[in-house]
Computed example of a mutant assay.
Amino acid sequence: MDATAVASTSPEIGGAAGWAVQLMERLGGIGAGVAIAAENLFPPIPSEVILPLAGFAAARGDMTLFEAITWTTAGSVVGAVLLYLVGVLFGRDRVYRLAERLPLFSADDLAKSEDWFHRHGTKAVLFGRMIPVVRSLVSVPAGLQRMPVIRFIALTALGSAMWNSLLIVAGYHLGGQWETVSGWLSRYQFVVFTAVGVAIAVWLFRRVRARSA
């Protein structure tokens, strides 16, 4: 990708996003895949910039649309598998010991969470790829629960391909206005984070009230 072209459409790109841009400039689709793998491990790296920008690069002819989707999906799978292995290596026993030390939390809470994941883990891994932060974190409980690795990879690849394709194709069609996608995602993320914050606040309120009763 031509650095001058990027600068002319997005002069404010810097930091982690700028690093991702440089990877795509140098390595094309492979660079986009590396950036997305890193985004799974370090969520502050913004996929809402990387993916539509990869679509813009495809529109310019710096890579094909197929390459952009394939490499970013591969990067999503690699990053997710690394976090899955973190869950495997950390192990359930350590998690239970940690839960017993946390205030307002108990091993019973963890057991309920495990039961929920046993029942809904497939949907959580598949659709969690489309939710900010969750798309990274959901790999850890999958590893803790030893979800069959082939199933985990298949679900991750499918969910990531759908999410990545949506943003890449949007960037492809928007061309020089690819940053519009970031505005859409900012509103989406605000709704998600607000819902999570409310859910946590309600849980804490109920737990504190139960403890003081």
Rank of each mutant, 00 (worst) to 15 (best):
V6A: 06
A7F: 06
A7T: 12
G15K: 00
A16M: 13
A17W: 01
V21L: 00
L23Y: 01
M24I: 03
E25V: 15
A32M: 06
V34N: 02
V34W: 02
I36F: 09
A38F: 07
L41R: 14
P46H: 03
L51K: 00
A54W: 00
A57P: 03
G61H: 04
D62M: 07
T64H: 04
L65C: 05
F66E: 09
A68T: 04
T72Q: 06
T73I: 03
T73G: 01
A74R: 06
G75E: 02
G75H: 01
V77K: 04
V86S: 01
V88A: 04
L89W: 12
F90K: 03
R92A: 15
R92M: 14
Y96T: 12
R97S: 07
A99D: 11
F105Y: 11
D108F: 10
D115V: 15
H118V: 12
H120E: 14
T122P: 04
R129S: 15
M130L: 12
P132S: 15
P132W: 10
V133T: 06
S136E: 03
S136A: 15
V140Y: 00
A142D: 06
A142K: 05
R146V: 07
R146M: 13
F152T: 08
A154L: 12
L155E: 05
I168G: 03
L174C: 11
S186K: 12
Y188K: 05
Q189N: 14
V191F: 10
V192E: 10
V198Y: 13
A201N: 09
V202E: 08
F205K: 14
F205W: 13
R207L: 04
V208I: 15
A210K: 10
R211Y: 13
